[in-house]
């Protein structure tokens, strides 16, 4: 059996975490979803610092922008400034549809920007689309 796809979800809202988990539950691929709830934790996870020494290297990062402590934008900037980490695709998944946020994210080399829809079904569809696109169509860089 192929190793599971490692997803890191950076999200502070437990409701969204649960919704994401729900949406990924019926996935055809084997997914391992790690969740951290703020930017500092996210960087620690990625750098395997502190309690995350054994953390897996994620194949893709789902990043919310508005996060406690270290904000999602800062996290994005740090990832994309890191020689090693910047190859990991970062999908911005946020409530904001503010033009500035979109522009800024892409300027920081976000791989794609998705606004969370209000409708549950739409949200599910988006998650399915992400899964489909990133895990089945796209060739990810070797770990």
């Amino acid at each position: 059996m192929a190793p599971p796809i490692q997803i890191l979800l950076v999200e502070d809202n437990p409701g969204d975490i649960r919704l994401t988990q729900e949406a990924l539950r019926d996935s055809k691929v084997h997914i391992y979803l790690s969740v951290v709830q703020d930017g500092v934790e996210a960087m620690a996870f990625l750098r395997r610092a502190g309690k995350y020494t054994t953390a897996p290297r994620p194949d893709i990062i789902l990043l919310d922008l508005n996060l406690p402590r270290k904000d999602g934008r800062a996290v994005l900037q740090e990832i994309k400034a890191d020689e090693d980490l910047r190859r990991i695709p970062v999908v911005i998944l946020t409530t904001s549809d503010d033009e500035h946020d979109i522009l800024r994210s892409y300027n920081l080399h976000a791989n794609c920007y998705i606004t969370k829809p209000l409708d549950l079904n739409q949200f599910a569809a988006i998650v399915k689309t992400i899964e489909n696109f990133w895990f089945q169509i796209v060739k990810l860089p070797p770990a």
Partner: peptide, 24 residues
């Protein structure tokens, strides 16, 4: 306005999403 666009919409989404989840 910015706060409104995010922080007001979060709870709304929660309400909507979970109501829909319940329904489904």
């Amino acid at each position: 306005a910015y706060v409104a666009s995010h922080d007001l919409q979060e709870p709304l989404r929660m309400v909507t999403s979970y109501l829909q989840l319940i329904e489904q």
